[in-house]
Design a protein around this nucleic acid. Structure first.
Lengths: 338, 338
DNA sequence: TTGAAAGCGTTACCAA
DNA sequence: TTGGTAACGCTTTCAA
């Protein structure tokens, strides 16, 4: 049953030198394009390297250059709702530079986090990216004063540290104005707990764009809350909205379902807009949700490029950098896609 | 704005030797517990190491031992539905052994995959774990004949290779028998496309457990299909089921929603069971779904321990290893939780 | 144009 | 009980 694994042996630079009948240093120079040398020699060596599938040992290289071409990614988001796209972006940005990414899932365990950080440091990572699920909480580990640069993405860093996050205010404003642009005027915002900074920032931006009368309802980040919120509004005898800005796609889904149960047509009678563009929720809702996308992948890309720059000694300005969100139009608001 | 990063300098074994007034080799021995030496010397050196925060350079160590304490994780599951728990399991199992995990998201791009594999090989990974979203498709890259061991998790490997997956048949059987145990006798299975091996295996196990009359309906892995399937059944004039085994949680959710729209009570009139235990779907459905959990995290753990064993030269029997699923009881079937 | 040698931070072996 | 030395695979400097 055990298959024959024709484990290809590894070729070292010594092997190559012997095969080519030159010295080790000549091979090194030939392959790295350094120094002057006979074009013929260089080509011969390069051909040989290609034929034998020679690949330099990154450990040896790293030992010498004190760069490992490796960065660590710390995350406490087991769900992956936010982390996965960010990770994909980081990986994508760095692979082009020959940099590999260590994945460290730390849950919320400080001890585990410490173990991971130490392991990464031992392996001489060129930098660390810390990611989380909310900008107003920090990971359960102190990343200050490490011998390598740290970039924070979607999690709280120390003051002055380099932090990337999405622009919640701009996103909420975008959503609100989209509804207004569609002629909706009685707007309500149904969102998550006011203990979340992002919920508050979105709510503020909503109020700003919707006017002082517009109602904000805080609850959980769940479908159930979206559902309940609609029940509350419909039972209260209050004026009923014709446009609902939701704090995330799950809430929006609850809202849409609750409206359907009341025979309120979406988007004809009420426009509903979500937040997150969580494909799996947004696309499966009936009707599919128009929503705000936080460009998490791009955020990851930038985070990757930033640690890289920092690890190369470049200077990156500290502070929180907010990346703009974009609107994704589906059917739940009417308008363009109707 | 730029914070003062008091980058702690790295201590080498040389520094330590100088500080302790002994030779480098003595320090090494003292810290690794090798060889005989004066207890006093050993303690003095260990204390010094602790005080200075000395940590050996893993690159240097790896160069010598030709073990990098690093493994690569290849995945084409951007969504992370399956990969994330698997990754968490791998990471969890390996961190205890001082092994770090390179995350490589390769989408379905063969070129990208090759680049990642080469980068990992350069970095002297001790082994590679390949993960995917279905057991009947392989990653777009050939992992045979690599100089390091490979373990496949939830994706197809070459014959004879070490592969881990969950036991679809056992899972479906578990689900079906749970419904029968609750007294349900008119069973239907609504599942994904018959082009998926797992859909077929689950369907076979369902037929086996439910009896020859039991109906299997193949469609998409979506809520929409669950919805439509119920519409089909209810319109067809066929006998209506009192128990529905779904191919995944999304289908189950569509089914539950469709039943509610028809005023069919779940679980009172019909029991519905899902598959996947995708928290975000299963727990948010009304009523919350009883479902089958594939133990993906455990699968990851085992995959991690297996590459580790292989990389240490131990022999692991090849072939496909199927891990049992477990039942997660919520409310959609009635019974225990009622 | 090429090669010898030193050195990166460790560990292992053998001699003192 | 301790220390010198070689070695891991590579790059770089300097000399030939």
């Amino acid at each position: 049953m055990a298959a024959v694994q024709s484990k290809s042996a590894r070729v070292t630079i010594h092997d190559l030198a012997k095969a080519a009948g030159v010295s080790v240093s000549t091979v090194s120079k030939a392959l790295n394009g350094n120094g002057r040398m006979a074009a013929e020699t260089r080509e011969r060596i390069q051909r040989l390297a290609r034929e034998t599938g020679f690949r330099p040992n990154a450990l040896a290289r790293g030992l010498l250059s004190s760069r490992s071409f490796t960065v660590g990614l710390l995350t406490n988001d087991t769900y992956g709702r936010f982390t996965l796209p960010v990770m994909a972006g980081i990986s994508e940005a760095l692979v082009d530079h020959g940099v590999s990414v260590f994945l460290c899932a730390i849950e919320d365990d400080p001890t585990l986090a410490k173990v991971h950080v130490d392991a990464m440091l031992d392996k001489q990572v060129d930098g660390i990216i810390a990611t989380g699920k909310r900008i107003d909480r920090s990971l359960p580990v102190d990343l200050e004063g490490l011998p390598v640069p740290v970039v924070y993405a979607f999690t709280q860093g120390a003051t002055g540290s380099v932090t990337l996050t999405s622009d919640d205010e701009q996103g909420a404003q975008l959503a609100t104005e989209w509804l207004r642009g569609l002629g909706r005027s009685r707007l309500v915002h149904i969102t998550g707990p006011d203990s979340f900074q992002s919920a508050c920032e979105r709510a503020d931006a909503f109020r700003e764009a919707a006017g002082p009368d517009a109602v904000v309802m805080h609850g959980e980040w769940s479908e159930l809350w979206g559902h309940r919120a609609i029940a509350n509004i419909w039972q209260s005898g209050r004026e009923r909205p014709d446009g609902i800005v939701c704090g995330n796609d799950q809430i929006a889904r609850g809202v849409v379902d609750a409206l359907r149960e009341r025979n309120v047509a979406v988007p004809e009678q009420v426009s509903v807009i979500g937040f997150d563009n969580w494909e799996i929720v947004a696309a499966q809702t009936r009707p599919p949700l128009t929503t705000i996308d936080m460009n998490l992948r791009e955020l990851g890309r930038q985070a990757g490029l930033m640690v890289l720059a920092l690890s190369e000694g470049k200077t990156v300005e500290g502070g929180v950098r907010k990346l703009p969100c974009k609107l994704v139009v589906r059917k739940s608001c009417g308008g363009a896609q109707d």
